Each structure stands twice: as structure tokens, then as C-alpha cells.
Simulated scan of single mutants.
Amino acid sequence: MRRIENPPPAVGQIWQDTDPRSHGRTVRIVEVSDTHALIELHERLGNETPGRRTRVRLHRFRPRRGYRYLGTN
């Protein structure tokens, strides 16, 4: 069976958090550096503030490691 790879993280892409505790939270990449991506909350869930930003290490943008690619915005 062929493994499906996510594309490299880039500005404007939409990704879904694969952690079951996140309940399908989606984020948009705002900025990418050598080691991190600045992400912004794409959909509001629970008490999270829409548009909240945080930094995430690039190695987490892989299936089963943190985020799954959905498309571009």
C-alpha cells in the first residue's frame, strides 16, 4: 500500500489537527521559518479565540504526528 505524503508546509495552507482531543480543529499557516510554522486558528471550537496564533515545529506537519493537509485558502 502506498503511503500518502503531506506537501511541505507553506503559507496559506489549511491543516487539520490529528489529536483526537482537538475534535477536528483546523489551522491556517501564516508564516514559515526554518524550524517552525506560525499558525492561526481557522475554525472556532469551544472556548478558543478565533484567529489565535501559535508556533508549531515543522516536523509535526505529517500524518500521525500532528497535522493532516486539507488544502489551500
Rank of each mutant, 00 (worst) to 15 (best):
H42Y: 14
Q16G: 04
R52C: 11
R44W: 03
G46E: 01
N6K: 09
G51L: 04
Q13H: 06
R44E: 11
Q16F: 02
T35R: 15
R53T: 12
E43Y: 04
H23K: 02
G24V: 02
Q13S: 09
E48T: 00
S33T: 15
E40C: 07
I29A: 12
G12T: 05
V32D: 03
R28S: 14
R52W: 13
R53H: 01
Q13T: 04
V56F: 09
L38D: 08
R52Q: 15
V56R: 07
R21K: 12
N6L: 10
H23D: 01
D17Y: 00
P50F: 11
V27I: 15
R62M: 10
L58S: 04
D17K: 00
V56K: 03
E43M: 06
A10M: 13
W15T: 03
P7Y: 07
V11P: 07
R57D: 12
G24D: 03
Q16I: 09
E5N: 15
R21D: 00
L38A: 10
N47R: 06
P63D: 07
I29D: 11
T49Q: 08
H23F: 02
S33L: 06
E5G: 13
R21W: 00
N47V: 01
V32A: 02
R57V: 10
R55L: 09
E40D: 08
T18Y: 01
V32H: 02
L58H: 06
N47Y: 03
S22Q: 03
E48C: 01
F61Y: 13
V11Q: 12
A10Q: 14
P7K: 10
V30H: 14
N47M: 04
D17N: 05
R44H: 08
L38P: 01
Q16E: 13
A10R: 15
P8I: 11
H42L: 05
E43Q: 12
E5I: 15
E31A: 08
E40H: 05
N47T: 02
H42M: 05
H36P: 00
A37M: 08
D17H: 00
S33N: 14
I29S: 11
S22W: 00
F61V: 05
V11S: 08
I14P: 05
P7C: 09
V56Q: 10
